[in-house]
C-alpha cells in the first residue's frame, strides 16, 4: 500500500500540538526541553485553557519558551519566576499560572523564591527541569550536579567536601504544608513521557482547584553539557541520575 493512501484514508494518530508554533527551537539536538514543551502545549490544549494560561519563563536554556508556545507569557528576572507567578495568580485567580524553570533558576539562584512561594501555598505549578548542569552557560556545576560528575568547573568530578551534596529540592518542598502535589518524572522514553504528561495535567488541575502549590520535577538530559550523544545521555541518566533522583510521586493530597 502506498504511503499517500494511508495518509488520505487513515486516521491522524499524532501531530505537533497546534499551540506550538513553527518557530525552530534553539535547543541542541535531543534536548529534553522540547519534549516537555510539547507536553505543556498538548495539556493546555486538551484542558481548553488556551486563553487562560499564563506561563512564566525562566533565565536559562528555557528562556525562549515564550517564542514557541502560543499562550500568554511573562519573563522573570533570574530565579524570580515564582514571585511573579504569585502576583499574577493573586490578581487573576481564574488563570492557569505556571512557571517553567531549570535547575539553575529554580534550585540555584531562585531557591528562596521557590521555597517561600510553595510554603505560602500559592495555587501555581512549578515545572522544574533538572539536568544536573548549567546548560546555557556551557556546562558548569549546578547545585544538582551529582557527586563525581565532571563539569567545566569541577573537571575532576564533584566532591562533597569542597562542593557539598546535590540538592534534592523536590524532597525538600514535599515537606512543606503549602504544597499539594509534588512529583518527579522523566521524559526519556515513551512510557515515561506518558506518565509525565499525566503528572503535569494532574498538577495543572490541582492548582486550578485551589488546593495548593504543585511542583513537578522533570529529570532531563543535557547532551551538550554532558558531552554525550542524545541516546547515550538518556542511558547515563537512567544509570546515574535515577538512583539519586528517584522517579515517582512524593506527595498527592
Amino acid at each position: 500500500m502506498e504511503k499517500s493512501e494511508i495518509i488520505n484514508k487513515g486516521t491522524l494518530v499524532y501531530q505537533k500540538p497546534t499551540l506550538m508554533n513553527d518557530t525552530p527551537m534553539h535547543y541542541c539536538p535531543g534536548c529534553s526541553h522540547g519534549v516537555v514543551h510539547k507536553l505543556i502545549a498538548e495539556i493546555i490544549e486538551e484542558m481548553g485553557m488556551e486563553d487562560k494560561a499564563i506561563g512564566i519563563s525562566p533565565v536559562g536554556c528555557g528562556v525562549f519558551i515564550y517564542k514557541y508556545i502560543d499562550i500568554d507569557w511573562q519573563e522573570a528576572a533570574h530565579g524570580r519566576a515564582p514571585a511573579l507567578a504569585t502576583a499574577i495568580k493573586r490578581l487573576l485567580p481564574d488563570r492557569l499560572v505556571f512557571t517553567y524553570q531549570g535547575d539553575g533558576d529554580c534550585a540555584g539562584i531562585g531557591t528562596n523564591e521557590t521555597i517561600h512561594s510553595l510554603n505560602r501555598g500559592e495555587n501555581i505549578t512549578i515545572i522544574y527541569i533538572n539536568n544536573a548542569i548549567y546548560g546555557m552557560t556551557g556546562g558548569q556545576m549546578a547545585p544538582t550536579t551529582l557527586l563525581g560528575q565532571k563539569t567545566a568547573t569541577c573537571p575532576y568530578g564533584r566532591e562533597a567536601q569542597l562542593n557539598g551534596f546535590p540538592l534534592k529540592l523536590t524532597e525538600m518542598v514535599a515537606q512543606l504544608e503549602g504544597t499539594s502535589y509534588v512529583t518527579r518524572q522523566s521524559v526519556h522514553n515513551v512510557a515515561a513521557i506518558r506518565k509525565a504528561k499525566r503528572a503535569l495535567r494532574h498538577a495543572f488541575e490541582v492548582s486550578m482547584q485551589g488546593k495548593g502549590s504543585c511542583f513537578v520535577e522533570i529529570v532531563s538530559t543535557c547532551s551538550s553539557g554532558w558531552k554525550l550523544p542524545p541516546e547515550k545521555a538518556n542511558k547515563w541518566m537512567e544509570e546515574n541520575m535515577f538512583p539519586y533522583y528517584k522517579i515517582g510521586d512524593l506527595k498527592d493530597e
Binding site: 487513515g10 491522524l12 494518530v13 499524532y14 501531530q15 522540547g34 510539547k38
Partner: peptide
Amino acid sequence: IGCASCALVCPDGCITVYKL
C-alpha cells in the same frame, strides 16, 4: 505500524503519524 513512539519522543515535533 503507526504506534507514534517516534513522534512522542521527538523533541522538536517533526513527525506526524497516520494509521489505517
